[in-house]
C-alpha cells in the first residue's frame, strides 16, 4: 500500500479481554512484521491489562462488505420474523419454554 518500501505495513489489532470472550477489534498500528505488530499492540492496547490474547491481521487482508449495498445485501432477512422466538404464541400456562 505504501509507496516507500521502508514504511511499515498497517495491521488491524484484535484483543481478547478475557478467556472465553471474543477477540474484539480495537484499532490499528504499523509494524515491520507480525511479531513486532504483536509487541507493539501489547504496548499500545494493553497497558492496563486489557487483554490476554492478541490477533494481528494485515489491513490489506481484510475484505469488507460495501455500506452502499447494505439495503439489498441484507434484505433477505427483512421478511423472516419467524426466525425470532418472539414470533411464536405459546399456549397459556406452559412453563420453561
Amino acid at each position: 500500500m505504501s509507496e516507500n518500501p521502508n514504511n511499515w505495513p498497517l495491521w488491524e489489532i484484535f484483543i481478547q479481554s478475557k478467556r472465553g470472550l471474543d477477540h474484539k477489534h480495537v484499532g490499528s498500528l504499523h509494524a515491520a512484521d507480525a511479531d513486532m505488530a504483536i509487541e507493539n499492540a501489547r504496548d499500545v492496547y494493553t497497558r492496563r491489562q486489557e487483554g490476554n490474547s492478541i490477533w494481528v491481521v494485515k489491513s490489506e487482508q481484510i475484505h469488507a462488505s460495501r455500506p452502499e449495498d447494505a439495503e439489498s445485501f441484507y434484505d433477505p432477512a427483512d421478511d423472516k420474523v419467524y426466525r425470532h422466538p418472539t414470533f411464536y404464541t405459546m399456549p397459556e400456562g406452559a412453563k420453561y419454554i
Binding site: N4, N7, L10, G27, S28, V44
Partner: peptide, 21 residues
C-alpha cells in the same frame, strides 16, 4: 499514555485515507 493516545488518533486519521507518513 500520551504516546499511545497519539497512536490511537493517528490510526483514526488513517481510516480517512491519509497516509501515516
Amino acid at each position: 499514555d500520551e504516546a499511545g493516545h497519539g497512536l490511537y488518533l493517528y490510526s483514526a486519521v488513517e481510516t480517512m485515507g491519509t497516509s501515516r507518513e
